[in-house]
């Protein structure tokens, strides 16, 4: 185990389990509310998936912050990149297999569960054979992979207006928006802790930054959605993303000032060594 990346291990302002429940429930509710699109034969309800993505990103970023405090030796981005690597593989599998079985509706659930399984196995292998010796690595990689998969599914649903595999292939994968979504999801999950780490890192500020990056992901999904599902539906996602970004960024700015105060007051170094 190398030097910790900052902050205290094992102290939480918000219980990680609560954030996990929020991430899973919020993510799935967001994705499945897009069913309204199919029921009412429209595309304007796609924005629910964007909100679901923000919830999943919060969960992923929170787990990244917990595991990175142990010091991975390779920097925070590696775990985010690993997460979307596992996430995209499992997501494509889940959506594809449910389409082949003729039950498209369970695609997101299969993708999510597969991602969690791949995450747990890789976490175990890395701990066991490579000897990273991070006690929470298995649970963390499991949750980060799950969050990454849910984020990818939610953003892809927002852009394609449906969680059906063929719609996603037509609207997200073939035009190449999937590459944009892949890298945006990765950055949204890894950036919050990467930007906030240090001795004064606090969970509430990191989580707020995760909401900010989530809103940015939603804005980008909105721009992609304008070209894939139509001007009005895309514009709703874009406008909501911008509104949420402004709200969350103001909150983040307040928290930054709150946490910076303690550093500001530490005083100057003595001029001569005594």
């Amino acid at each position: 185990m190398t030097v910790a990346a900052g902050g205290e291990v094992g102290e939480f302002e918000i219980d990680p389990k609560r954030i996990m429940v929020m991430g899973v429930v919020g993510g799935f509710v967001g994705v499945y509310l897009v069913s309204l699109n199919i029921l009412l034969n429209t595309t304007i309800f796609s924005f629910f998936a964007g909100i679901g993505a923000i919830m999943a990103i919060m969960w992923g970023a929170d787990q990244v912050s917990h595991v990175s405090k142990y010091g991975l030796g390779t920097g925070v981005p590696s775990i985010g990149i690993l997460a979307i690597g596992m996430g995209i593989i499992a997501t494509l599998f889940g959506l594809s297999i449910s389409y082949k079985l003729g039950v498209d509706a369970i695609g997101p659930v299969i993708g999510f569960l597969t991602s969690c399984a791949i995450g747990a196995v890789i976490g175990y292998l890395v701990n066991r054979f490579i000897g990273l010796n991070v006690p929470i690595l298995v649970s963390a990689t499991l949750q980060i992979a799950g969050a990454a998969s849910l984020t990818l599914i939610a953003l892809m649903t927002a852009v394609s207006g449906s969680y059906y595999f063929l719609d996603m292939v037509r609207h997200v994968i073939d035009p190449g928006f999937v590459a944009l979504i892949l890298i945006t999801s990765g950055l949204a999950i890894l950036n919050p802790f990467n930007a906030c780490l240090g001795p004064d890192e606090r969970q509430s500020r990191t989580i707020t930054l995760a909401k900010v990056t989530g809103a940015i992901a939603m804005i980008l999904a909105g721009i992609a959605a304008i070209s894939s599902i139509g001007l009005i539906s895309g514009f709703i996602i874009l406008a909501l993303g911008i509104a949420l970004w402004i709200v969350f960024f103001m909150k983040f700015w307040d928290l930054t000032k709150r946490d910076a105060f303690a550093v500001w007051c530490t005083g100057l170094l003595p001029e001569e060594e005594e």
């Binding site: 990149i81 690993l82 979307i84 690597g85 995209i88 593989i89 590459a179």
Partner: peptide, 9 residues
């Protein structure tokens, strides 16, 4: 996109 995921991992 799958190859990229595989590569990352």
């Amino acid at each position: 996109i799958f190859a990229i995921g595989f590569f990352f991992l």
